[in-house]
């Protein structure tokens, strides 16, 4: 029904009172939004709650979307702000998984990774697990760039920083991801080469 319509057409319909048209936007972006919230929140149930909150906020303030940026960019700005306030409310420690103690703790959690079972894991799964082990802001910037199809300009807008700062953050996040993969997924990295 909404598959052939672009975001702006769906938004116009919603603003004209057809609130069912919003389902098209939810279906289109739910995976992107959920993946991004999961990068921050790290817990599926809570990430789903936050993702729902994001779509509710976006609906409430839809009239404020001016259309001068992509809807997705505007939506991910809401994701970023909602996740940050959620983490602040929870006073959640933003773990740096570069810290070996935290890494050991993460190993004991059910992340689906076991050293002896590495070979059975797909490379894609390995990358996803490595991203899950990163700090929320690093994981989020990588997700925005690679999965949510946002340019560096758009990422800067979402995070409320200068383009150069976004570029530096992306470089650092990728360097940390690579380091994490080399340290903890050495077997898989060797297989890649």
């Amino acid at each position: 029904m909404s598959a052939g319509q672009n975001d702006n057409e769906l938004i116009s319909k919603v603003l004209q009172g057809d609130h069912q048209a919003y389902a098209g936007l939810v279906t289109r972006y739910q995976q992107f939004v959920f993946t991004l919230t999961l990068r921050f929140v790290k817990n599926r149930e809570e990430a789903e709650e936050v993702a729902q909150d994001v779509f509710i906020k976006a609906y409430k303030y839809l009239a404020d979307f001016r259309g001068d940026a992509k809807f997705s960019t505007w939506l991910y700005t809401i994701v970023n702000n909602t996740c940050i306030s959620f983490l602040r409310k929870k006073k959640l420690v933003i773990h740096s998984l570069d810290d070996e103690r935290v890494f050991a703790k993460a190993d004991n959690q059910d992340l689906g990774f076991r050293a002896d079972g590495v070979e059975q894991k797909s490379r894609h799964r390995m990358v996803t697990e490595a991203i899950n082990r990163m700090k929320p802001d690093d994981a989020a910037i990588i997700t925005l760039f690679y999965k949510n199809e946002q340019s560096l300009d758009e990422i800067a807008q979402i995070l409320g920083v200068e383009v150069n700062a976004a570029k530096v953050r992306l470089h650092r996040a990728r360097a940390r991801l690579k380091e994490l993969m080399e340290t903890h997924y050495a077997h898989e990295i060797n297989d890649l080469n």
Partner: peptide
């Protein structure tokens, strides 16, 4: 690999939950 990594999917009721919530709401004026 980063480009090929998969997106996470929320529960099947996700969209329905959102639509139920917004049916009780009104869009704020710009």
């Amino acid at each position: 690999l980063l480009h090929a990594s998969e997106l996470e999917a929320p529960s099947l009721r996700f969209s329905k939950n959102v639509m139920e919530e917004i049916s009780r709401m009104q869009i704020a004026p710009a």
